[in-house]
Simulated scan of single mutants.
Amino acid sequence: MRYQIIAAALLACAGMASAGVTVKYDNPENFQDMPHNDRDRAQIMKDLSEHFAKLAKKLPAGQDLVITVKDIDLAGREEPTRRRIDDIRILRGGADWPSMQIQYSLEQNGQVLKSGDERVSNMMYLNRINRYDNDNLKYEKQMLDDWFREKFEPARVSRADH
């Protein structure tokens, strides 16, 4: 029964689509740094997909963003607890910054306006003001906000960018 629930959650997250965005996760079981708990892993993918959908609402009408997340390394490091109920994530600010390998394509009317495959990261994640105060993915969301602003601001996206 447990594996059926996990499989259903992963399938739901594997190709979430919303108006203006399609998010896929390529082999999430092999991601560099995700929680060991299957429920928590599925929740992270769901939350990230929802955040990508929120960002995509800023795109001009008629543009669609297709994102494939190829790897995730969350901020901090997960360390086991003695009680074995839930592991805890420790943030030290050293070489434990958040990063994601993302393949993306911005399309309009079936034509690709912009595409790429890159590692998005935020090495200074603990040294910045963060507006996602009580969010479990506050550093990852801030990193994605910065990436989206840099790649997809209307003034920066044109046919010449491709």
Rank of each mutant, 00 (worst) to 15 (best):
N37K: 13
Y104I: 09
A160S: 04
L137E: 00
I72C: 02
L126K: 12
D145S: 06
T68P: 00
M124N: 06
D26G: 01
Y3P: 01
P80Q: 09
D146P: 09
P35C: 05
N122Y: 06
A53L: 07
L10I: 11
A9Q: 14
K24E: 12
A42R: 04
H51Y: 15
E50D: 15
I44A: 02
K46S: 14
K70I: 11
N122W: 10
D87R: 15
V120Q: 00
P28I: 07
G94M: 13
H51T: 07
S18G: 05
M100Q: 08
R89F: 06
Q108I: 08
P80H: 08
M1C: 10
Q101R: 14
K54Y: 10
D47I: 11
Q43P: 01
E78W: 14
F31S: 04
E79N: 05
I129H: 02
N109H: 08
M143G: 03
H36Y: 05
R131K: 08
E150V: 13
I72N: 00
I5A: 13
R149S: 14
E150M: 13
W97R: 08
T81R: 09
E50C: 09
R149Q: 14
D161C: 10
V23T: 05
V23F: 00
S158W: 06
V157N: 04
N134L: 07
D47T: 09
L74E: 00
R92G: 11
S121H: 07
D71A: 05
A61L: 10
A12N: 15
L59Y: 04
A12F: 06
C13V: 11
Q43T: 08
A19G: 06
D133S: 11
D40F: 14
A155S: 09
I102H: 00
K114Q: 13
D86F: 14
E50N: 12
L55G: 01
R119G: 00
P28H: 03
E118Q: 15
D38E: 12
K141Y: 00
N37H: 10
Q63I: 11
D40P: 02
M123E: 02
L91N: 06
A95I: 12
Y132N: 08
L113E: 01
L137P: 02
D86C: 12
G110Y: 07
D47E: 14
A53Y: 03
E78D: 05
V112S: 10
E150S: 11
L106A: 04
I90F: 00
G93I: 13
D71Y: 03
E150G: 04
R128I: 15
V112K: 13
M45N: 01
L144H: 02
P28R: 05
D40E: 15
S18M: 03
T68R: 05
L113W: 01
K70Q: 11
V21K: 04
L10P: 01
E150Q: 12
Q43A: 08
H162P: 00
T81H: 04
D26A: 09
R83S: 15
S105V: 08
E153V: 14
S18K: 02
E107Y: 01
S121E: 02
W147T: 10
M16Q: 13
W147F: 11
G15K: 11
S115H: 09
K141S: 03
K114G: 02
Q108N: 07
A95C: 06
E78N: 14
L55A: 03
V23Y: 00
N130E: 10
H36K: 15
M16Y: 05
I44S: 01
P60Y: 10
V120T: 04
K54C: 09
G110M: 09
K46G: 07
K54L: 15
R2M: 09
L91R: 10
D146N: 15
Q111D: 14
